[in-house]
Each structure stands twice: as C-alpha cells, then as structure tokens.
Amino acid sequence: MPHAFSPSRPKPAPSVRRGRRRALACAGALLASVTTLLSVGTAPAAPATAPATTPQGKPRVTAAVLGLDDGSRRPTLYGEDAAYDTASIIKVDILATLLLQAQDAGRHLTAQERAHAEPMIKSSDNAAANALWRQIGQATGLESANKRLGLTATKGGPGARWGLTRTTASDQIRLLRAVFDGQGTASGPKTASSALTEESKAYIRTLMTRIQSDQAWGVSAASGTQWALKNGWLQRNTSGLWDVNSVGRITVNGHHYLVAVLSDGSRSMDEGVTLVERTARQAIAAATAGN
C-alpha cells in the first residue's frame, strides 16, 4: 500500500512502540483465524494445517536480499528457500496483477479499483483485498500474471483464501524486482522487470511508502531513513502459531536493496515481528559487509 520513494522513519519512542503493540494486538484479534481471509458472506473453511517448524519446535525464517546497485540478478539467501504462507504480503502481488490486467485492456484503474487498491496496501484492508482478489480471477489470474512478472514458485490460495497463497523468499524478490528494478532499454526484449509500465510501477511504489505508521515495522528496521514495504501476519487455527512476513525496498548508506523475510511458527505476533526484524538486520549486515 508519485512522489519520493520513502518517508523518514525515526526510531519509535516507547509510547509509539506501546501503541504499535496495541495496534498489532487488535490486528491479531481480527486475524485470529484463517476465516478472516475469506470474503464476506463465505462459509467458514476447514482449519488450516499447522505451519512447519524445525525439529526443536523453533520458528522457521528465511531471508533473501538483492542489491539493486551492483548489477546482481540473483538474491543472496539466508535459510532454506522453502514455501511459506503469504498472509497480507500477497496484496502487492494482487495489485501488480490488477495493473497488468488493466494494461492489457489498454486502460487505467477505475476510481473504484483505486478505492480498493490504496487501503489494501496502505492499511492492509482485507475487504478491499477480497474485492480485488475476485476481480483478478483469484488464484488463476494471479498465477497467469506471475508468469509474466517472473515468479516461478508462488501458488495462489484456494478459493477466496488469498492469504494462504504459498510463496518463497526468492520469488518475493522476483516480484519486488518487477516493481523496483531498473528501467531497462527501450529497444531491448521485454523482460519480467518491464512487464509493468513505469506508471504502474510508480503507483505500487508510492503506496508502499505510505503505509500506516502502526505497520511501519519489518524489513524497514534494517534501513536508514528510506523504505517502501508491505507486511503480512496471520495466526493459524490449529496451532495458534503465527506467520509473520515482510517485503520491500530499503536504503542503507546510500545503497538500495530488495529484502524479503518470511517466517512461521512464532508463538505470538510480537515474537514474529522481532524475529523478522532481527533476521532483516542480520541479512543486510552480511550483504553490506564489503561496502
């Protein structure tokens, strides 16, 4: 969820952190089951299976980092590049799919589509995501667009359950590249990075810099003052454990990085946020060690 890429993000004061925890707790209550991810009026789904954890029962976590300034085409991975539930990070992919479909039709987004897209990214509005998920054709539409965007390991969630889409950290870097990567050459072949027009890319980027302050956590913890991101969180029915994810573009010491951190198996949302932020910092520290 155009002007400058990213806003300033000073370290939150204790009161802000407490406010964030309260906001996250409220969000957790609203997302306390997989059925929250269903469209309004749909019958409850069968409970989802518990997320996989390590043999010691610890949460899983995987990070992927790609430097945009060094010409690298492959991200550096930290942890196993396994599949995770997306939760609300899928909303970036939903918007990219919507924009690609609009491009194919030779039109701009309608006022109603923008009225859904903007709260879907900026405030992670689920009702807006429900509407756009139906509009793009659910998993079929998403996967068709992802082939053109360069994603190879993302499977759309069943039926109305967009939050149960499965993805990998490296595939999230591919999606971020399609939004944030270089412009390419006018005469060169069409690539995954140029499947979206510059106007479409700028729209997604702008929304990702304008997320609500209570959601300004995740990979942005590893940045300086500039970032654009989308986070996702979901508590699973059967286990009570949390999926917590964060993806985005950050700037560190003048260098630009795409970062994706996916996790599951945390005992609380706060624990998951702490894990994601710690992992993002460690991955960026390793990536920037030679700079």
Score class of each variant (00 low, 15 high):
Gln235Pro: 01
Ser8Asn: 07
Leu175Glu: 08
Ala202Leu: 11
Arg281Thr: 12
Thr274Ile: 10
Ala43Tyr: 08
Leu68Cys: 11
Val247Ser: 03
Asp171Arg: 13
Asn237Lys: 11
Ala145Cys: 15
Gly159Val: 01
Glu277Lys: 09
Glu118Phe: 05
Lys58Thr: 13
His255Lys: 13
Ser246Phe: 10
Arg278Cys: 06
Val34Ala: 12
Gly157Arg: 00
Ala115Met: 09
Gln172Val: 07
Ile173Thr: 10
Pro44Met: 11
Leu142Met: 15
Trp233Pro: 09
Ala260Val: 09
Ser200Ile: 10
Met269Leu: 04
Thr251Gln: 00
Thr97Gly: 08
Lys91Tyr: 08
Val261Pro: 01
Thr185Glu: 02
Thr238Pro: 03
Lys190Asn: 02
Asp171Ser: 14
Arg267Val: 10
Ser6Asp: 11
Ser246Arg: 03
Leu175Tyr: 06
Arg161Asn: 06
Pro47His: 09
Thr152Glu: 08
Ala50Arg: 14
Ser246Lys: 04
Pro14Glu: 01
Pro59Gly: 01
Pro10Ile: 09
Asn130Glu: 05
Gln103Arg: 00
Lys190Thr: 03
Pro12Trp: 06
Val244Lys: 00
Ser194Pro: 09
Ala64Cys: 10
Val40Thr: 11
Arg74Glu: 15
Arg20Gln: 14
Thr279Gln: 12
Gly188Ser: 04
Ser6Gln: 05
Pro2Ile: 12
Arg17Met: 04
Leu100Pro: 11
Asn245Gln: 03
Asp181Val: 02
Val61Pro: 00
Gly290Lys: 14
Arg114Trp: 10
Pro51Gln: 12
Glu118Ser: 08
Lys58Phe: 08
Arg134Glu: 15
Leu68Ala: 07
Leu66Ser: 03
Arg177Asn: 14
Leu99Pro: 07
Thr76Pro: 04
Gly182Asp: 12
Ala228Arg: 04
Arg107Thr: 11
Val273Ile: 07
Asn231Cys: 11
Asp104Ala: 02
Gly57Arg: 02
Ala195Gly: 09
Leu31His: 11
Leu149Ser: 06
Ala102Met: 04
Ala117Val: 11
Pro189Arg: 01
Glu271Lys: 14
Leu132Ser: 00
Ser187Leu: 14
Gly157Val: 04
Ser194Ile: 09
Lys190Ser: 05
Gln235Glu: 00
Asn130Lys: 09
Gly19Pro: 03
Arg20Asn: 13
Glu277Gly: 10
Ala222Leu: 01
Cys26His: 14
Asn245Lys: 02
Arg267Met: 09
Leu207Cys: 11
Glu143Thr: 15
Gly41Val: 02
Pro75Lys: 00
Leu132Pro: 06
Asn130Val: 04
Ile136Arg: 07
